[in-house]
């Protein structure tokens, strides 16, 4: 059942998929940029700024999806104790945080012409901001221990705690928003979205999805090397004589 839980085997599959992901992501990105920036019409109310949506919305979807993936990996690490899930979560965190950041910045830039100000405590933007804080917390905790192997379990636990809290945070932020802002400032495309716009959105979602996954695979390669490196250093210590071991212990303390 845990055939793919073997990190080396998983990595072999991932390495084989990497060029495909990069290629597909690149092609979709070109198509999406063409469709989004050139072929699709401007909105009659928002004019050209509607084109920000093709970057903003996919980034938002993927940032949330990546956090969910991180939590799944962390949960599998906590339950079955195989390290792959934890390594995947660690590899995904910076990519998800970058997407979250892109979503926030494009949201703010979009806000200027649409709302007249860069930042509004709109429910969607606010919950993305909190998601970014959760990403930061995870990355900080994962790297906060002098003995790096000690950070795995706390970080995994935090990812799971975070994913349990996200619905609560989202709900409370929306609740807060309905009380403080009586009118929604703008309605997103909704079901009546122009098919050209929908196509651009889907292409960009696919492009960013493949590219972000490719980036996560590259980072996973790094995380695996970290583990091997640590094991190799440990082996080096064991070959040394006992006195040197003690000295090493003292200097690391």
């Amino acid at each position: 059942m845990h055939r793919f839980a073997n990190p080396a085997r998983f990595m072999r599959v991932a390495e084989r998929l990497l060029p495909w992901f990069l290629g597909l992501g690149g092609i979709l990105l070109l198509a999406g940029l063409y469709q989004g920036l050139i072929a699709s019409p401007a909105d009659y109310q928002q004019h050209e700024t509607v084109r920000i949506m093709y970057l903003h919305v996919p980034a938002a979807i993927l940032a949330q999806g990546f956090y969910f993936g991180m939590a799944l990996g962390s949960a599998s690490f906590l339950i079955w104790k195989h390290p792959l899930g934890d390594l995947m979560a660690r590899a995904m965190a910076p990519v998800g945080a970058a997407l979250c950041f892109i979503c926030l910045v494009t949201g703010a830039i979009w806000g200027k012409p649409t709302w007249g100000t860069y930042w509004v405590w709109d429910a969607r933007l606010t919950s993305m901001l909190i998601l970014l804080f959760l990403y930061f917390g995870y990355m900080a905790l994962a790297n906060a221990f002098d003995d790096p192997s000690r950070g795995h379990k706390p970080a995994a636990l935090l990812a799971v705690v975070g994913v349990v809290n996200i619905p609560v945070i989202k709900f409370s932020v929306y609740f807060f928003n309905t009380l403080h802002q009586k009118s929604t400032l703008f309605a997103e495309g909704g079901p009546s979205m122009d098919p050209d716009m929908l196509l651009a959105l889907m292409l960009m979602l696919g492009a960013l999805g493949f590219l972000a996954t490719a980036m996560a695979i590259i980072r996973l390669r790094g995380e695996m090397t970290v583990v091997k490196l640590r094991a190799a250093r440990h082996g080096l210590n064991r070959h040394d004589d006992a006195t040197q071991d003690v000295k090493h212990e003292e200097t690391t303390r």
Binding site: I130, F133, G137, A144, V161, I169
Partner: peptide, 19 residues
């Protein structure tokens, strides 16, 4: 057992306090 545990705790806990 983390480095800078106090600051780290703020980063972890405050977002969860928002609701």
């Amino acid at each position: 057992g983390a480095r800078r545990a106090g600051l780290l705790m703020a980063l972890l806990v405050l977002p969860l306090y928002i609701p």
